[in-house]
């Protein structure tokens, strides 16, 4: 009986010791103590190719793979004003973040290194429409930066069964 009560006192020393510890709470929204890693996935962006045009070729791979079915892409074939070659361009690209589960599968399958996720973790809005990303907003996101490490190419190179480089995540 006495022993049990003395053992209970260890609990007090534990809590007392913790009084002196550094606090671990992040004082959001004022300050963020820890940065998200570069692979963090939140938000989306459509990047440009080397000619300054949107890299998306409207192949609908992301639309088909998206488990939640939140991506709608419509495209048309037209001549590039820069290179003069004919290729498909997205006319509209709608991504409804309200139902997104951030699984990164759209990035996984993209054949043209177009869609990427972002590390900017605050995606505020005042209405549901604010969370519906259009082609313009997706491209603006890409110009704003904060892009995740994973591009479609990097992801697939990392997963490639014939990969030579076994070291690290950066192929």
């Amino acid at each position: 009986m006495m022993r049990a009560w003395i053992d209970t006192l260890f609990a007090f020393s534990t809590t007392l010791r913790n009084v002196g510890r550094r606090r671990v709470t992040e004082p959001l929204p004022w300050k963020r103590l820890r940065a998200h890693p570069e692979r963090y996935r939140a938000g989306f962006a459509l990047t440009d190719d080397e000619h300054g045009e949107v890299a998306c070729i409207a192949c609908k791979a992301c639309e088909n793979v998206c488990p939640s079915g939140i991506i709608r892409v419509e495209g048309e074939r037209r001549e590039s004003p820069v290179t003069g070659k004919k290729r498909a361009y997205p006319v509209s690209f709608v991504l409804d973040m309200n139902a997104c589960i951030f699984c990164e599968l759209c990035v996984q399958v993209c054949p043209s290194d177009a869609i990427r996720m972002r590390t900017a973790w605050t995606i505020p809005g005042t209405s549901r429409e604010d969370q519906v990303l259009t082609l313009e907003r997706l491209r603006a996101n890409a110009r704003e930066g904060h892009l995740s490490w994973a591009t479609p190419g990097r992801l697939r190179a990392m997963q490639d069964p014939e990969r030579k480089n076994g070291e690290g995540g950066e192929p």
């Binding site: 990164e104 599968l105 996984q108």
Partner: peptide, 24 residues
């Protein structure tokens, strides 16, 4: 999170292997 990019719903595995290799 450093490995997969998410804290809760990782989507870290795929058929035949992992989706993410370890970061440096």
């Amino acid at each position: 999170e450093a490995l997969t990019g998410q804290r809760m719903h990782y989507n870290a595995l795929m058929v035949g292997g992992n989706r993410h290799d370890v970061p440096p």
